[in-house]
Design a protein around this nucleic acid. Structure first.
Length: 355
DNA sequence: TGGCGTCTTTACTGGCCAAA
DNA sequence: TTTGGCCAGTAAAGACGCCA
């Protein structure tokens, strides 16, 4: 999609590279809606570095001794089984998109950082032979790491070698911070890539689409902010589905989705209503229930809530084992049974042309 | 006037923590 | 144990000033 700004990013996290990666992974094949969730997880699901198991909830609540640790373990085992992978090897078969981007970036960033620092030091202290500290040489981290690398005096790394290891450790730790950005925009690109490869794809679809380019939405007034929608689908006639794609939510983002709906509503020029759908991989039952039952102007905000993998919700919240469920998990189970919350497979079948 | 660089704003996420 | 809300880090987009 053309952008209005000249400084379009061509970086590893930018839209062109994300789309390239999605196309590289999905290739030319047709995607069966029933298996689409597997591609989404292979591309985007990741392993919590502190527990070594698949991430389905906030890290602090998923540590050993916390309530979400056993749930995360069961999720990890179930996903591994479904993908036909040993649980120990799952890490090598998910998180593909992030691994592609970060593997090359972190080392390059670490090297660039040290080169810049040495350049500045040289410009300030040319001729001064005193050695100055370099970025990443954390004394406490060094105390931990250095003994592990010192097998014997003859094998011991020199100073530059140790600093190189420390920088790479830091680069790795900070790389996790980049995931949020890639996940947010990448989720939209992955879903659009899946939709494109359906056996009977819808007439229109797109990610990060300017609202006024979608049939039935009027242009923004001069000076107003250009409004975009995460993802949209159209049947080429009167049906338009506006999609909010959020991998997970917090309470503050729930308000944002209602605000977005109001914006779309104000800009809708047709008498025909548009549909509003939330696609998510959220596992928190309260957040799912809240958004699936949220109302706006005396009607439900979302026409549908779509979860990437409802079967995984059942595993995590133990819908099948007969135990008494808590209030929110019980309500979540009802909403799934009522098809107020549906799976990605059902949604993809619904939007398929002729579907 | 248009190109360019820099700064600011917006939107995305998970982590985290206090309160319920 | 859950819930609500804020924060940090990131990229993209927009705003703005400078200069040829």
């Amino acid at each position: 999609m053309a952008r209005s700004n000249s400084n379009t990013s061509q970086g590893p996290f930018g839209q062109p590279n994300r789309v390239r990666l999605v196309n590289q992974f999905l290739g030319l094949r047709t995607i069966d809606p029933a298996n689409a969730w597997k591609d989404v997880y292979r591309l985007l699901l990741w392993i919590d570095t502190r527990t070594g198991i698949a991430h389905c909830y906030e890290s602090d609540k998923s540590q050993p001794g916390k309530p979400w640790y056993p749930r995360s373990l069961e999720f990890h085992e179930w996903v591994s089984d479904q993908l036909g992978i040993a649980p120990m090897d799952l890490k090598d078969h998910v998180d593909w998109m992030f691994r592609q981007v970060v593997g090359a970036v972190t080392e390059a960033e670490a090297d660039e950082m040290i080169a810049n620092a040495l350049g500045v030091q040289e410009s300030l202290f040319a001729g001064n032979r005193k050695k100055m500290p370099v970025p990443g040489d954390d004394p406490r981290l060094r105390e931990i790491v250095e003994p592990l690398m010192s097998l014997s005096p003859s094998e011991r790394l020199d100073e530059d070698g140790i600093n190189s290891v420390l920088r790479k450790v830091y680069a790795h730790m900070s790389s996790e911070n980049k995931r949020a950005n890639l996940l947010g925009r990448g989720f939209e690109d992955v879903l659009d890539g899946v939709i494109r490869r359906l056996p009977a794809p819808p007439e229109h679809h797109g990610a990060q689409t300017v609202l006024e380019t979608i049939p039935g939405f009027r242009p923004t007034r001069d000076g107003d902010k250009v409004e975009k929608v995460d993802l949209w689908v159209g049947d080429g006639e009167r049906r338009r589905i506006m999609i909010s794609a959020k991998w997970s939510v917090r309470a503050d983002r729930e308000k944002q989705m209602a605000t977005d709906f109001q914006t779309y509503n104000q800009m809708n020029d047709w008498r025909d209503p548009f549909e509003y759908v939330w696609i998510t991989n959220e596992f928190d039952p309260a957040r799912l229930v809240t958004n699936a039952t949220n109302t706006q102007n005396n009607s439900l905000l979302f026409d549908k809530v779509v979860h990437i993998c409802p079967a995984a919700l059942g595993v995590v919240h133990r819908f099948g084992d007969g135990a008494r469920l808590g209030r929110n998990p019980a309500r979540l189970q009802e909403l799934l049974a009522e098809q107020r919350i549906i799976g990605l497979d059902a949604f993809l079948r619904d939007i398929s042309s002729g579907g």
